[in-house]
Design a protein around this nucleic acid. Structure first.
Lengths: 191, 191
DNA sequence: GTTAAGATTGACGATGATGTCAAGAATGAT
DNA sequence: ATCATTCTTGACATCATCGTCAATCTTAAC
């Protein structure tokens, strides 16, 4: 290997993720990425091709971390406890930072109209996997739900998490989001 | 009045709404608006000042129409029926057109980070009013809910509608959205 | 029919983003 | 030490958008 890369790729991707998380795929520019990473625009083009390629790498990292956190949060025997810690995680995830960064998946989903198939696919993947995690949790409850019900409910819960992400963008506080999530869990799982 | 406007303002705003609905405030350009309305860019600047001013007018029209439709849909004695027709309306609203236009409020909310205070305020207004409509419906149910519960639940429902809007952008079909909404209504109101 | 307020038009300059490239720098392999 | 390969750098051309402006046109009011 000759002519060796002068920057740490993991660092660059992690920093790029932060930029995309704050600005979104569409609004983040190559200049933003260059400034944040300290790597010149030209080098980024040379190394990755274009902005979307960088985004896909960053998003994959984000998705893996997000889904792992979701899985961990859901790892409780009691469904109600599992869902509460799940929503806690989700809400902290989107209200973290100052100003809060929001939810990257949701932001990306909203740009679907101007995004490539690859990007749209990643969003669907994350949501699909999240739904599976939730379905497993709901189905595994002792004296459990019928499988079809668990799946339908899982999608409802995923949908509600997306709603929380929108409400966060609309200005609702972490506390308000948590209250809504608590009400939701009580209403849905209490039944 | 001398030097009279050559175009119909209501037409222009209605057409602008269509453009914003399809592209979003941020992605729609003055050229888009000029092309769609048949009014030159210069004239639009002269008449309205800038893109945001046009957007605010269009959004106000949209919000009024949307809230009226929501109010009508909710006008049933039976809470379950009211919510079902409410969600039907919401889902049709966001899956209409080809390609579907999605939900303008949600799209706008997601751009909060790069929007003016005036725009953010409109989004909050719509969501707040929607919440009020729902709260009234839930509170008015015979043998009704406690007021505090109705308000909390109303916010949960608003949040869920935002989630549906995201799911639509993520590629879920009208049918899938309706199924989720039905599951949600059963789970929440059945309790 | 003149007039003057206001609308329309097309062109202009500024800005910022994209993607490319040639020249120079760095370094593993020999 | 030299070479060959790859990375880095800064400049370049292109493109889209924005907002403005002077010249021109339109028309209500007189």
């Amino acid at each position: 290997m000759v002519g060796v890369r002068q920057f740490d790729e993991d660092n660059v991707i992690a920093t790029a993720l932060d930029v995309f998380w704050r600005k979104g795929l569409h609004d983040a520019t190559m200049q933003d990425l260059a400034a944040a990473t300290g790597v010149q625009r030209g080098s980024l083009y040379n190394a990755y091709g274009d902005k979307e390629a960088i985004f896909l790498r960053a998003f994959d990292q984000y998705a893996a971390q997000f889904l792992e956190a979701a899985g961990n949060a859901l790892a409780h025997r009691d469904t109600t406890t599992a869902l509460r810690s799940f929503f806690d995680m989700i809400i902290v995830n989107m209200t973290d930072g100052s100003p809060a960064r929001g939810c990257l998946t949701t932001r990306t989903a909203l740009d679907a109209g101007i995004s490539s198939a690859a990007v749209r696919q990643r969003v669907q993947d994350v949501l699909g996997r999240l739904e599976q995690l939730l379905g497993k949790t709901l189905g595994a409850t002792p004296g459990g739900r019928r499988a079809a019900d668990a799946h339908r409910l899982a999608r409802v819960i995923v949908t509600f998490t997306r709603g929380l992400a929108v409400m966060e963008r609309a200005g609702y506080s972490r506390k308000q989001l948590k209250e809504s999530a608590a009400t939701f869990v009580d209403a849905v799982v209490g039944a």
